[in-house]
């Protein structure tokens, strides 16, 4: 095993651990916002680590950039979706008093 393969292995395993943690959090956390928190944070980091690990293995710069683009787009999408979900939950659960749980 070369050094780069070793690094890839470590990064991917770390990424998988984050995914696992995020999923456990989604299942175990008590309320909506902490679940959302667990999911998005862990997925973002997990995906990032795996992408980083895979970037070491592809042959060309172009392919590596494509992988990076996947991560950036996933980041954008998850941020937007997280915002929408949070907004929806806020308007649903507290009606008028949006301030309370907003912090």
């Amino acid at each position: 095993m070369t050094i780069s393969e070793g690094v890839t292995l470590i990064l991917c395993l770390a990424g998988a651990v984050f995914f696992l943690a995020g999923t456990v959090g989604l299942l175990r956390f008590p309320d909506f916002f902490s679940r959302l928190h667990a999911l998005t944070k862990a997925d973002t980091l997990g995906l990032g680590l795996i992408v980083l690990g895979l970037m070491l293995q592809v042959g060309s710069i172009a392919a590596a950039l494509k992988l990076l683009l996947i991560w950036v787009l996933a980041l954008l999408a998850s941020t937007t979706v997280c915002h929408l979900l949070g907004n929806y939950e806020l308007s649903r659960s507290s009606g008028g008093e949006k301030r309370k749980a907003g912090s």
């Binding site: 787009l73 954008l76 937007t80 915002h83 929408l84 907004n87």
Partner: peptide
């Protein structure tokens, strides 16, 4: 509009 964040993201993408 359901939210300007979505609209903005989509338009910039």
């Amino acid at each position: 509009r359901p939210g300007t964040v979505l609209g903005g993201t989509v338009q910039s993408l």
